[in-house]
């Protein structure tokens, strides 16, 4: 009973938030409703007993894809008045496309037929000794391994393509070469200082110059902070 109630609650929120994705005026709100929709879909997976898919949905779509999506949408500078300018002109075309898609959906669902054996398969007991994570792994890495690898390769190509298209080598930019910096051995020394001792007493810094060797910065009358430096090397 509780599972049934939860199913209807999550489904209702899912549909409501999906509607809000399309209708809300602010695109950031749309993305946030989309995230809520993903969440409820994950909850429905959980109720169906597919806990692995539920978690992967949250990790991949909510945790990574939607974050980047939100990232981009937040930075867009959208003028709502201009966005609605051509609404009346484009509304009929939009309605036609929407209608076609809806009809296709009706045809697909209307032509849905389950095969004769499906009914008997449904009565098979679900194996209790295999978690669905392991079950997915067994199918994915044995029967569908080539399709799986091909999907990975396609994503890799898409990724490389995106990098090639957007990467510009700026010849004038200054690059930091961390290896060179780490390998550099110059006059810097590490000193172990006993707790509480001042570094002046230990003679680690250059000793202060004697009083008469001080630059006569103060008498020139520019800047009062000069004698604080004390080293006298900057004149």
């Amino acid at each position: 009973m509780i599972a049934g109630l939860a199913f209807y609650a999550f489904s209702a929120v899912l549909i409501a938030s999906a509607v809000m994705v399309v209708t809300s005026r602010n695109p950031v709100h749309s993305v946030l409703y989309l995230i809520l929709a993903f969440f409820n879909a994950a909850a429905l997976f959980l109720i169906a007993g597919a806990e692995f898919l539920a978690m992967i949905l949250v990790i991949v779509y909510v945790g990574a894809v939607a974050v980047l999506f939100l990232f981009v949408v937040m930075m867009l500078d959208i003028d709502f008045a201009r966005l609605r300018e051509g609404f009346q002109r484009y509304a009929p075309i939009g309605a036609v496309i929407g209608g076609i898609l809806f009809l296709e959906l009706v045809f697909v669902l209307g032509a849905w037929q389950s095969s004769g054996q499906a009914g008997s398969l449904r009565l098979n007991p679900v194996p209790t000794d295999v978690h669905n994570t392991a079950a997915i792994g067994r199918v994915l890495y044995t029967e569908y391994v080539f399709l799986f690898q091909a999907a990975g390769l396609i994503l890799l190509v898409a990724m490389i393509g995106a990098i090639v298209l957007t990467h510009r080598d700026r010849a004038r930019s200054r690059r930091q070469d961390i290896d060179v910096q780490v390998a550099r051995r110059t006059q810097l020394d590490m000193a172990s200082v006993p707790v509480g001792a001042s570094i002046g007493e230990l003679g680690i810094l250059r000793p202060l110059p004697p009083e008469e060797a001080k630059p006569k910065a103060v008498t020139h009358g520019h800047g009062h902070g000069h004698d604080d430096h004390g080293h006298g090397g900057h004149h």
């Binding site: 806990e51 978690m55 992967i56 949250v58 990790i59 909510v62 945790g63 990574a64």
Partner: peptide, 14 residues
Amino acid sequence: INVGILYLFAISSL
């Protein structure tokens, strides 16, 4: 739960 570590990973990424 069976997928405890995935749950934690999901929540921390949220």
